[in-house]
């Protein structure tokens, strides 16, 4: 464990708390002028469920197990809130990204490019590929509405920072322990790349007090 990875994981936690806070605060997932994509949240729940199949079989540390449990539980809770509690405020007409294609693509790629052709490894690889593109429905929704509530942009910023710090962590681990993981690196680079446009607008507008609006 290094500092980059620790802060990255903490930013991931922060992003989830921001999301829960937003949902509780507005008592809806719709909010005033920005929305949370149910598809993105459902994809994240799928990511955690397929990645941590070793939860009971492989104990690494209390930290590792606690985080895994938290990510699975919180993602399922968010999906539950959106599907049942705040269903009326969730507008599927804006959540139009074709998620089935990225699920299919990630599954196909996981069957072809993996470290070992076992059920657990293919599921793990699938979760890595799926996480890389899981934010797309949310970003797509943002593009469609053209603007976002500040709290939604903070959520995306925390998520993007978490991914960015993982990139730094891999460079650090490569030099200090000769750690190599091509599948995670390439998927992670793609995932972080998706946040570039968002980061640009976040830094140039939101941090200067302006509203998040697409040009």
């Amino acid at each position: 464990m290094n500092l980059f990875r620790l802060v990255a994981d903490l930013m991931h936690l922060v992003s989830i708390f921001i999301l829960l806070l937003k949902m509780q605060k507005t008592r809806s997932v719709a909010g005033r002028c920005s929305r949370i994509s149910f598809k993105t949240q459902a994809l994240y729940a799928t990511v955690f469920l397929t990645r941590y199949t070793d939860l009971f079989a492989n104990f690494q540390s209390l930290y590792n197990t606690t985080m895994k449990v938290f990510f699975i539980a919180s993602s399922l809770y968010i999906v539950f809130l959106m599907k049942f509690k705040f269903k009326a405020t969730n507008d599927p007409r804006l959540d139009t990204f074709k998620a089935q294609y990225v699920v299919g693509g990630a599954a196909a790629l996981a069957l072809i490019v993996n470290y070992a052709f076992t059920v657990q490894e293919v599921l793990w690889t699938f979760s890595i590929y799926l996480e890389a593109v899981a934010i797309l429905p949310q970003l797509f929704m943002l593009t469609k509405t053209g603007e976002a509530e500040v709290i939604t942009t903070h959520y995306l910023f925390a998520l993007g920072t978490y991914r960015g710090l993982y990139l730094v962590n891999w460079i650090y681990r490569y030099w200090t322990e000769y750690y190599v993981d091509w599948i995670v690196w390439i998927a992670g680079a793609v995932q972080t790349g998706l946040y570039c446009d968002f980061f640009y607008i976040y830094f140039t507008k939101v941090l200067k007090g302006a509203k998040f609006e697409l040009p």
């Binding site: 990875r5 994981d9 492989n58 985080m67 895994k68 070992a116 993982y166 993981d181």
Partner: peptide, 10 residues
């Protein structure tokens, strides 16, 4: 070998 693969990151 599959048993050697350990994913220590989250």
């Amino acid at each position: 070998v599959a048993e050697d693969i350990e994913h220590d990151e989250l």
